[in-house]
Design a binder for these strands. Structure first.
Lengths: 189, 189
DNA sequence: TTGACGTAGCTAACAGCGTTAGCCATAGTG
DNA sequence: CACTATGGCTAACGCTGTTAGCTACGTCAA
């Protein structure tokens, strides 16, 4: 249940991202660009090597494998999304924080749809992510609702709405704006 | 907003599944079993061929390719889920229809987690599915809420909660029951 | 009965995937 | 100067979905 005085203060500290070499940062940047521009199927080790001018096998001098690369991409996305969502909650007032949070979540996810899909595909090894990152990036939902279970429910609803919108992007002409409004209404008491 | 007199009657007719030969039904059944038992990575054409005693290449005498196989598996799941959800809405009263629908959706999705993941992976070609199936299998959410946008929002929320539960199955000890209760509460006015 | 034809299996092969082994040039350090 | 670590390379392995071409069998017509 939402209490007065929201949005709540930050509690979880922003985790410290693990240090990466210059080359690794270049690889991750190229991977993000490739994923965003051409989708998950185009994100192959050979293709990624081409992008930075080395052979696929040489990537293994910098990264242990493709799962680690994918985790690094997701990690970048989680940091950016966490920053964006925390900032929105900082700026919003108690009355509109849920709607503002949902709007930003929607905007951010759809803007980087391929990365979002990868992050939620269920095959990312969470243990490869910086500890505490999941909790910190999800905290805005707790700050906006004041209740951990309502926060989880709201997060789940937002995720589901994003997926719904992505899947119906080419088939359905239904009014997704109205769906998002219905969602915000359901979670604004 | 929920109106009095719910749950609503059925409107969309259950679509007629396209006819399949005996062999195709056998292949689809083996695919479902393989997917359920060993996950998406195990669902390869060679492995599937082994399962029914033919070579992978021979599968192409019955199916045009792996996307068509995956669509057939998803189609089976959508029919079963649609039947289950419609039945629950039939049996429920206006006061508890949302909670009952959510409970059945949760149960069904988690029971066939691998198939559910495949169905919502975003790479199923919707045009390979029986026309009207998507609409019919989602109709219980409209019948339970009485409003198309609330229905979509509730459907999205249910999907998100399922994914949340699957992803946190091995990492998180949080109380998902409470999350589902919060969800049902948010959509029961 | 025989010939034609479609069905449904087979083997072999191809390109692309992630990944490993082993080789070699270069840079930095004692 | 010699040693070593770094980061490239080629070649290859086993796996993937998929195609081409061959063949045995069942059915149906002349």
């Amino acid at each position: 249940m939402a209490r007065a005085g929201l949005p709540l203060a930050r509690i979880a500290a922003r985790p410290e991202p693990a240090g990466r070499s210059e080359r690794v940062r270049e690889i991750v940047a190229a991977g993000l660009a490739l994923l965003a521009a051409e989708g998950a199927d185009a994100l192959t080790m050979r293709r990624l090597g081409d992008e930075i001018g080395i052979r696929a096998a040489s990537l293994y001098k910098h990264l242990p494998g493709k799962p680690a690369l994918e985790a690094a991409l997701v990690e970048t996305g989680l940091f950016e999304m966490g920053d964006a969502l925390h900032a929105v909650v900082d700026a919003a007032g108690p009355a509109d924080v849920v709607a503002a949070l949902l709007a930003e979540y929607r905007r951010f996810a759809l803007m980087s749809a391929n990365l979002y899909r990868l992050a939620t595909s269920g095959r990312i090894d969470r243990s490869l992510l910086t500890p505490g990152l999941d909790g910190w990036s999800g905290e805005p939902f707790y700050r906006a609702t004041g209740d951990p279970w309502v926060a989880q429910a709201l997060f789940a609803a937002a995720h589901g709405a994003v997926i719904l919108e992505m899947d119906s992007a080419y088939s359905d002409m239904s009014d997704l704006d109205a769906t998002w409004r219905a969602l915000a209404r359901a979670f604004t008491t």
